[in-house]
Amino acid sequence: MKKINILASLLLGLTLFTACDDDRTSNPTFQQPTTFVLNTPAYATAVYDLEKSASVELTCSQPDYGFTAPTIYTAQVSLTNDFSTDGAYLTLPSTYTSAKMNVSASEIARAATNLALSNGKAEDEFPITTKLYVRLKAALTDGKGEIYSNAIALDNVRVYFALDPVVLPATMNIIGDDLGDANPVEMVPVNGNAGMFWHIVYVPAGGKLKFNIAKTYDGGEFGTSATLVDNATAGLSGDGDIVVANAGWYLVVVKSTIVNRDINYTVEFNKPTVYLLGETVGTWDLLGDNKFTVPADGTSYFVSPPFQFTKEVRMCVKLGDLDWWRSEFIMFDDGVISYRGAGNDQERYVGSAGKKVYLNFMTGKGKYE
């Protein structure tokens, strides 16, 4: 009987010991790690050609959080070994969950390219060979326990120009609540002139406008940051939004140019001069007698002079010294203004002698009467 009691006591003690051990395991105590070592690669002095490599292998020690826990690693790179000044280093987008990681060579190249450009390098100087410094950031999956490793140097890194080419915009929109139901207004590309757009709009007194490749506000919009040219006494001002002091119809033109890796914009406000030309009026010259009258408000029509002959209708606005057909348009019986834009020569419409064209550029519609 005594032996049975002793055995029972031993089993009970063992059970209590196991329960306590399980409790410690399921409720670990977090500790902030104090060391985190990024190992120097064996070939740190060799040439790393980022254009011909898929990745760069890095290994590190695991931060000691007091227990085994999933850890997220992120790589940062610098050309100057400065990891304290904003802009002197960049964090790569990919993350890793292993202390042995293959860091994307293309991500390193993009970051190094940006850093080199910010340090005064020009695109035509690439590829470059440079020393590159790398460090790691580690943290638990909830962001707790953030710690940075030492920085290691890769002595000879060949960096190709890894950024996408900067291209001129293919679309442009005028946005702003003051455009009323027409918001946004999709601008018309100028034929054969990449990055140039036009449209005729009505803006009320004090109206505010911006421009964007997208048809909404998405962070890419611009206003007074563009170079503003007021050829129509519009009274342009503002801080961000372009404020138009004087109500009226305006032929708005946007020109875009690439300077280094930036796109610079010029916004012109011009008088809204619309011409009828061609066989209906017996001349291909842009004459004052063939201008449309300009309405006083935003709901009325631009009105052409009457057709002299029953012939094909041709209409345009004139943009600087460009040929008129680069900014021409037509309207068919459906009453919708059809812009040539960047497209080919349009279909033809024959207008009857004595009739006029009525156009409203805010609604995009008109009529022949």
Score class of each variant (00 low, 15 high):
residue 178 D to H: 03
residue 241 D to F: 11
residue 97 T to S: 13
residue 156 N to E: 14
residue 105 A to N: 02
residue 101 M to S: 07
residue 219 G to Y: 01
residue 48 Y to S: 04
residue 360 N to G: 00
residue 128 I to V: 11
residue 279 E to F: 12
residue 166 V to W: 03
residue 37 V to K: 12
residue 116 A to N: 13
residue 241 D to L: 05
residue 172 M to N: 02
residue 117 L to W: 10
residue 216 T to L: 10
residue 182 A to E: 02
residue 174 I to A: 04
residue 291 K to C: 14
residue 41 P to I: 13
residue 121 K to Y: 15
residue 72 I to A: 02
residue 73 Y to L: 05
residue 352 S to P: 00
residue 268 E to W: 11
residue 257 T to W: 07
residue 364 G to C: 00
residue 66 G to P: 05
residue 118 S to C: 05
residue 235 G to Y: 07
residue 260 N to A: 11
residue 273 T to C: 11
residue 88 A to G: 14
residue 148 Y to K: 08
residue 188 V to M: 08
residue 156 N to P: 04
residue 10 L to C: 11
residue 278 G to M: 08
residue 93 P to T: 12
residue 40 T to F: 12
residue 49 D to W: 04
residue 124 D to A: 14
residue 222 F to R: 00
residue 232 A to Y: 07
residue 194 A to T: 09
residue 100 K to D: 13
residue 17 F to G: 05
residue 300 S to Q: 03
residue 367 K to N: 14
residue 213 I to P: 05
residue 201 V to H: 00
residue 195 G to R: 09
residue 172 M to L: 01
residue 110 R to K: 15
residue 97 T to R: 02
residue 259 V to K: 07
residue 176 G to D: 01
residue 54 A to F: 07
residue 166 V to L: 01
residue 361 F to D: 00
residue 365 K to M: 15
residue 264 N to S: 14
residue 340 R to Y: 10
residue 295 P to S: 01
residue 144 K to A: 08
